[in-house]
Simulated assay, not measured.
Amino acid sequence: MSIYNYLVKKPNGEILSMETYRGKPMLIVNTANQCRFTYQLEDLQKMYEKYGENNFVVLGFPCDQFDNQNPEDGEETTQLCKINYGVTFPIFELVQVNGETTHPLFNYLKHEVGFREFGKANMQEKMLAQAIFQIAPSFLDGRNIRWNFTKFLVDGNGKTIARFEPTDSQLDIEQVIEKIL
């Protein structure tokens, strides 16, 4: 399988093939409107603008799986992201990223690239790990996505290059993006 074999749904209900993004490096992110990491939408928009001339795209997939931090549908989420954070990159319909109803794209991404041990990188991550342990301890296990704003970097050939946790710095992410551009 390839990332280009997957279909995603736009907020208006239109089905889009990931083939649309063939040849473009992508940063695929599970987002949320009411999360303490929601400020990252501004950072993602800046990356989208900064690297857009290199065909780089950011793709946002809202997810309400983490403490109900995105109860809105895709259309409302898109509007909130645009109004509150100036987002112009594509936002899709809500998805599940863990469990039995995991969207196939995220199931694929989680198995394409390794993950690092979580909860030890910095104080913010330690605190997040404690919160996850209380809310949904299974999200800390294995390949599961631990929280909103987990990011997957895919190169222009469709190869998943890296996974970034919500607590990883924008500078570290940009360094890896620049290597593949």
Rank of each mutant, 00 (worst) to 15 (best):
E93Y: 03
P11F: 10
P25H: 03
A32T: 04
K9T: 13
E125R: 02
F118G: 01
Q130V: 03
Q45V: 01
A121W: 01
F92G: 01
N5E: 12
N70M: 03
N68S: 14
I132Q: 07
Q134H: 09
D67Q: 10
C35S: 12
Y39L: 06
I83F: 10
V87R: 02
N144R: 08
D67W: 11
P90G: 07
T160V: 15
R163T: 04
E100S: 15
N144Q: 10
L128P: 01
E100Y: 08
L7E: 12
Q65Y: 00
G23H: 05
L7Q: 15
L181E: 05
Y39G: 06
S17V: 08
E53H: 13
R163P: 07
V95I: 08
T20N: 11
V8A: 12
F115T: 14
P90L: 06
A136D: 09
T102A: 10
K110S: 06
F152Y: 11
Q134S: 07
R36D: 14
G156M: 03
G23C: 13
N98D: 15
G74Y: 00
T78M: 12
E14F: 01
N68I: 10
W147A: 01
K9V: 13
I28N: 06
I135M: 13
L171S: 13
Q45A: 03
P71K: 09
F149N: 05
I161M: 09
H111Q: 12
F106K: 07
M26C: 03
G142H: 04
Y51D: 07
L140F: 02
P90A: 07
L27Y: 01
G156W: 04
R22K: 14
Q130F: 14
K159Q: 15
I145F: 01
R22N: 12
D141C: 12
K120R: 12
Y85I: 02
L109M: 11
E14G: 03
V87A: 02
Y39A: 07
T88H: 07
I83A: 07
T101Q: 13
L27D: 03
V29W: 00
V97L: 03
M127S: 05
Y4H: 09
Q45L: 01
P11S: 09
L171R: 15
F89D: 08
Q40R: 08
I132D: 10
N54D: 10
S2W: 01
R22T: 09
P137M: 09
C35F: 11
M127N: 05
A162F: 00
T167S: 12
L171K: 14
F164Q: 00
P62I: 05
N54T: 13
L140I: 00
N55S: 11
Q170H: 14
T20Y: 15
F115V: 15
C63A: 12
E93R: 00
T167Q: 07
N84P: 00
Q79E: 14
N54Q: 15
M18G: 04
N98H: 11
G142L: 08
R143H: 10
R36T: 15
P104R: 13
S2Q: 09
A32D: 02
N12M: 13
I15C: 08
G23F: 03
